[in-house]
Design a protein around this nucleic acid. Structure first.
Lengths: 290, 290
DNA sequence: TGCCCTTACGAAGAGCGTAAGGATG
DNA sequence: CATCCTTACGCTCTTCGTAAGGGCA
């Protein structure tokens, strides 16, 4: 029995439906189905009554609730107790400016859920500055678009995002340039040798907000702009090349923080998940929240 | 976190070494290493001090013991509570005579460990009789060398054992014939048309015991006789053909006993494991225990 | 028809065993 | 140098996501 099953069970209980639980747990709905099914088999009893309006507990499910709570509570307790005597030094996590949304934020909340008592320190900044900190030993783990290979560092390619050029439907001006890192800059200058941006920024969300309000053209991560492309507010610029934007996660080999592996595992999980409904379904509020 | 990790942890604690824990859990020793390592990573603390004379708890490990116990106890409690209101009808398990050792015995003890409160009924007998019971609906799950395909039954090939002919090193007489089932009998008569056995039995272990004490020749499962072949008490009969002996597990599709899946899963696990050290290392005592 | 859940299936990852190597008394 | 544990590697099974289907208002 995996404690994930108990957690999934309770999430369904609290939410009242598999769909909602899936969202809260950041997994697909079929995964919730499979987990509940597995739990039901192990317990030898049906836990939920499925209906068109959601799922409600059977008597057996009702009786399992306190046990599930106890299991999770015991585990949390154990985590607390263990980390209590461990080094109090925080796990220092860095992310390049373009990456804190949504990856760093999701990552931190995942970590907080998983290790409630973990002391962590999050920094957002220029890639090269953070890379220096990694080498200094003043940063433990870094999310960046640029990799720097050193004997003391461990580099892993997390994923490849795609940058596409989009424009406001009505007004293609001004040209807004986002600093997506050194590698992108080089590629971009090769593709558009004579182009000079009217506006430059180092935060994608800022550029996007400007573009939506004032009009303009610029490069953005395809996942991020997908909802506006769908709604017709933005459109792809015909003929503009796409760029690939790798994301690396780096760690110091010398870092022996006990939760380093946990953190690495967590970010690995997150990037494999599809864009969360919340992230794309309510684009307007996403922007205003910044 | 999987509860297996907690169970493994406690087994190591009680036994004092990874090797011993591996034996008790019927897994390889590297598996124990991996599980403990995983647990240590999730807890962010080292649990054992490894030494040449075994493993002892670190302070952190010491503190984790009660939590691990609590986790397992809670889960056992949940199982008890769930099955308490379930049908009281026992899960009826059958096995053909040749299969109760070692498979049925291991299976039952695994089930008892996994589902302490499961009410079960074990029957050993002639394959055809048990097959009839399956069709009658008076048996839920059956381990047999013969398959019978019926719409109401679900058949799965569990594994293929190999029968080899062996003889006592000094004395090849008498010829002892074990009834390994219908399929084997047919194959055997094809291979040895004129042969008539001096002694017939329907229990392999009985034949083996006779053969070891009195001398003789006969067909046995290769895994079972391996230790005596190695020790030189027995030898293969040159030129004698090998026979393949399939093992099927059958279930009634109509059976909705809540623990049926658990049981199926368990036997699937067991057959994938190598012959347990105990089973082959101490052949003499194995025999006398019967 | 829309919502909620299940089934089928392929791909990625986890778990486990074998074989070989390091440490420690 | 024997015992106990770890590492490396390959295989298998599990798990998860995508796509498609069923039941119920």
């Amino acid at each position: 029995m995996d404690l994930n099953l108990a957690r999934t069970f309770l999430t369904v209980v609290y939410g009242g439906s598999f769909v909602l639980a899936a969202e809260r747990l950041c997994v697909s709905q079929t995964t919730v189905t499979a987990r509940i099914k597995s739990l039901e088999e192990q317990l030898g009893a049906q836990l939920f009554v499925r209906s068109a309006s959601g799922s409600s507990l059977t008597p057996a499910g009702e009786r399992f609730v306190p046990h599930a709570q106890q299991l999770l509570a015991t585990w949390q307790d154990a985590l607390r107790n263990m980390s209590a005597c461990e080094r109090k030094e925080p796990l220092r996590i860095g992310a390049e400016t373009g990456l804190w949304q949504p990856w760093l934020t999701r990552w931190l909340s995942w970590l907080k859920l998983e290790q409630p008592d973990l002391h962590m320190q999050a920094r957002v900044g220029q890639g090269s500055m953070l890379l220096d900190q990694m080498e200094n030993g003043t940063l433990d783990i870094l999310l960046s678009h640029q990799a720097r290979y050193r004997p003391a560092l461990h580099v892993r390619l997390l994923m490849e995002e795609t940058l596409v050029q989009v424009r406001h439907v009505e007004n293609p001006e001004p040209h807004i340039q986002t600093d997506w890192g050194e590698a992108f800059r080089q590629q971009f200058e090769l593709a558009f040798p004579a182009q000079h941006a009217q506006i430059e920024t180092n935060v994608g969300q800022l550029a996007l907000q400007l573009l939506l309000e004032q009009g303009g053209t610029g490069y953005f991560r395809s996942q991020v702009v997908a909802p506006w492309l769908a709604s017709g507010q933005l459109m792809r610029v015909a003929g503009a090349p796409e760029f690939s934007l790798p994301v690396y996660v780096m760690t110091r080999k010398a870092c022996n923080h006990p939760q380093l592996q946990t953190a690495l595992h967590g970010i690995g999980q997150l990037v494999r998940q599809p864009p969360h409904p919340h992230d794309s379904a309510v684009p307007a509020s996403d922007i205003t929240h910044e």
